[in-house]
């Protein structure tokens, strides 16, 4: 896994690099602002990028904008966006292109190293990993077409949006993997998702749920 890391805080940048390299990733470039990020991505063959939302020069949301720009240029380029706070608005903007390979997490989640690295892997493989905090605000809404889902199916879909595998969902909900597979198939059917490979359908289900 060859990654570009963009984070302006030196402590956090070094921490991220150490943590990713310890888990088998190769960091091809580490930058501290959005401008050099664009250059680094052009000059290096990378499988994905891990970005901080707030970076120089304006310290607002250039990381997010950079992520959207990269994906406009290189369709479906995997990005994992990290931030000190999460907004549903930003999650929707990241997913607006209708493609997967997007992660959007609170920086706190990095503390759970195993789960975080697994999340990065899933994003690079084309999946979506959305922060539980975003998921919980969406869970508060009950709207069509998600209304048609049973409460159990909604739980499964929420965990799917967090980027969990069927196996992880099964252990989180204390059910068998087979039961989870039954739920996911039912979700795909209720959301009228065309038959395709499982990964692609998972992404589509999450996108439908986020209403983007």
């Amino acid at each position: 896994m060859r990654l570009v890391v963009a984070e302006d805080n030196a402590l956090l940048r070094d921490g991220l690099i150490r943590l990713l390299e310890a888990n088998g990733a190769t960091i091809v470039a580490a930058v501290d602002n959005a401008t050099t990020l664009a250059v680094a991505l052009r000059e290096n063959e990378a499988d994905g990028a891990v970005l901080d939302v707030r970076m120089p020069p304006t310290f607002t949301d250039e990381g997010l904008r950079a992520a959207i720009d990269i994906r406009a240029e290189r369709t479906g380029f995997p990005v994992m966006v990290l931030s000190q706070y999460v907004e549903q608005l930003y999650a929707r903007e990241l997913l607006a292109s209708g493609q997967g390979a997007v992660g959007y997490l609170l920086k706190d989640r990095v503390a759970n190293v195993g789960e975080f690295v697994d999340g990065v892997r899933r994003v690079v493989a084309g999946g979506t990993v959305i922060d539980p905090e975003v998921i919980s605000t969406i869970m508060a809404k009950r709207e069509e077409p998600v209304d048609r889902l049973t409460p159990r199916e909604q739980e499964v879909l929420a965990l799917m949006a967090e980027g969990r595998s069927n196996q992880a969902i099964a252990s989180a909900l204390f059910v068998t993997e087979k039961a989870v597979a039954k739920h996911t198939n039912s979700i795909f059917a209720k959301l009228d998702l065309p038959v395709a490979d499982d990964d692609n359908r998972r992404v589509r289900a999450v996108l439908a749920w986020l209403r983007v």
């Binding site: 707030r54 607002t60 949301d61 000190q84 706070y85 907004e87 608005l89 930003y90």
Partner: peptide, 11 residues
């Protein structure tokens, strides 16, 4: 968020 919401600063 109670002092100055980051999204207000951003957007």
């Amino acid at each position: 968020r109670g002092i100055h919401p980051p999204v207000l600063a951003d957007r």
